[in-house]
């Protein structure tokens, strides 16, 4: 078993863990955490699967690199929306 395969399988478990968290957790911050876990799991599958026979594949690596930066932007936007939501609730 290569490291690629090990981390691809770990990525699947992380993705499912995150998915379960997004569905089941009630606090918004936890959901954002769970959503990030889903993303990280998908990244691990993407790179791990391409490198399961031990080679190095720059194409999924470059895509995951862009993905990480987009994930932080999505997180920040989600936090901004949640804060706005809290503010709206408080004003009621």
């Amino acid at each position: 078993m290569t490291s690629g395969l090990v981390f691809a399988l770990a990525g699947v478990l992380l993705f499912v863990l995150g998915l379960g968290g997004v569905v089941m957790l009630s606090h918004a911050l936890r959901r954002i955490l769970a959503f990030n876990l889903m993303g990280s799991g998908a990244f691990l599958v993407l790179v791990g699967l391409a490198q399961r026979d031990g080679g190095v594949d720059p194409v999924p690596q470059a895509m995951v690199l862009t993905g990480i930066v987009v994930a932080v932007a999505a997180t920040a936007l989600a936090l901004a929306l949640v804060r706005r939501l809290h503010g709206a609730h408080r004003d009621d």
């Binding site: 932007a73 999505a74 929306l81």
Partner: peptide, 8 residues
């Protein structure tokens, strides 16, 4: 995303 945050 940054514009969205600015608006929010």
């Amino acid at each position: 995303a940054l514009l969205g945050i600015g608006a929010a």
